[in-house]
Design a protein around this nucleic acid. Structure first.
Lengths: 229, 229
DNA sequence: TCTTCTAAGTGTATAGTTTACACGAAGTGT
DNA sequence: ACACTTCGTGTAAACTATACACTTAGAAGA
């Protein structure tokens, strides 16, 4: 099948910045390119948008095909349309960011990728295209978003301790938080429910585990509640 | 000039939601389409992105060509990629929103538009394509943005009274604000400078005019200040 | 120039929120 | 039983947000 256009048109791709939370670091998932241009360079997972799929569908498809990533929180970030993004031709890319539970994923290289890996945000290799700009913008967005929407939970396991949650905010916001004040604030929102489980495999007193109650959050939101950290 | 691609690709357009502030209302600038599809319908100004222009450039060009709008605050909003947005072919549109000083513009119909007009947000005609969705999203974004960034000033003349500014926030946020508290808060930020001018042509005591000091804002921002209303 | 009208401009007290701060107890490992 | 580590908890002080009403400037018209 081939199509002819009267005027040259930009092509459309999607690229995804997948974040994962390590013990002490935010990580980004990168793939090593099998093909030119930027062969062997590290890059964001992504690719051309097909004529019969939406942008979100394209993003999820590429994530699965290139890195074996499924079931993540996914949100559109920004569309990059610089003239020289790609040396071959004019490409407009719709960038997404995703939040993954690091533990969940048996990530794997696939299809167009030679390898897949998690890299600390402050320890990224040189990236293909303008992908470093995209990562930076995704990081800024995450920092902003985490403060007024309960998206942080997407980076933690289903059940987590308050200390884990506090670490998450400290890592993303880059600040230290007071333990007592943090707990007071997050518990006062009444979005967490205490489970009857505790942390496993630690060599000290185990912390109680909580889970985020999304239904409660949706209900409160309808009543005008606004999440804020 | 014509180009052949092996696979069908989505085309890329830009569409702009231009906001303007009336005495008592937020208005949106619409154009009446001269061409099919949706001939004679009202729609957002916009059009195809050329191969040799960035997305921002395309948005500004279309604004000028179709509605005579120049020199506005312009920010990318979201990219819409639904499969059936356009009955002719698959089109991905990068939506922008713009803030215009309503008084400045001698808007005019041009090129691909039959007419141009400002419409109250609660009084929009039926719009072409998915443009109603785009307007809604732009409105939500503006409501959010105005609270943590000093963008509201883009809708007011260079010099404005505190009452005008308060009205702006009341209109965009949809709430009533207390006059004394509003003044205290905005003046405490130290972003406004008193001019030696007063309102003209009112039939009562004229209010002092202020202007927004962007340099001061930039300076304070670098020092960690965060705007919030 | 007096009167009327409209919006401008201004302060305080109270409630609520955010911050700073430290230690005893639980549980693990030796 | 002892050492070690993290858990879990309250209060006082500083700050911020809210509620609230009257006097005065200036324009317009009698």
């Amino acid at each position: 099948m081939s199509f002819t256009y009267e005027y040259a048109r930009p092509a459309v791709t999607v690229d995804c910045v997948v974040f994962g939370l390590d013990v002490s670091d935010l990580k980004v998932l990168l793939i090593q390119r099998k093909l030119t241009p930027f062969q062997h360079s590290w890059a964001l997972p992504g690719g051309f948008v097909r004529i019969d799929e939406t942008l979100d569908e394209a993003a999820r498809r590429e994530l699965e095909e290139e890195a074996g990533v499924t079931d993540v929180y996914l949100e559109q970030l920004y569309t990059f349309g610089g003239l020289d993004r790609d040396p071959r031709e004019r490409i407009v890319t719709v960038a997404y960011y995703a939040l993954a539970k690091l533990s969940d994923h048996r990530i794997r290289a696939a299809t167009d990728a030679m390898g897949v890996g998690w890299f600390g945000l402050d320890d990224l290799p040189k990236l293909a295209f303008d992908h470093a700009d995209i990562v930076q913008r995704a990081h800024e967005r995450l920092r902003g978003k985490v403060r007024y929407a309960p998206v942080g939970f997407e980076l933690l396991p289903q059940r987590f301790s308050l200390t884990q949650l506090q670490r998450l905010y400290e890592i993303i916001l880059g600040t230290d938080l007071d333990k007592r004040n943090f707990r007071k604030k997050i518990l006062a929102m009444d979005l967490l429910v205490e489970t009857d489980e505790v942390e496993q495999g630690v060599r000290h007193r185990a912390a109680r585990l909580y889970r985020f109650d999304r239904r409660k959050y949706d209900r409160l939101t309808k009543q005008g509640f606004e999440f804020a950290m």
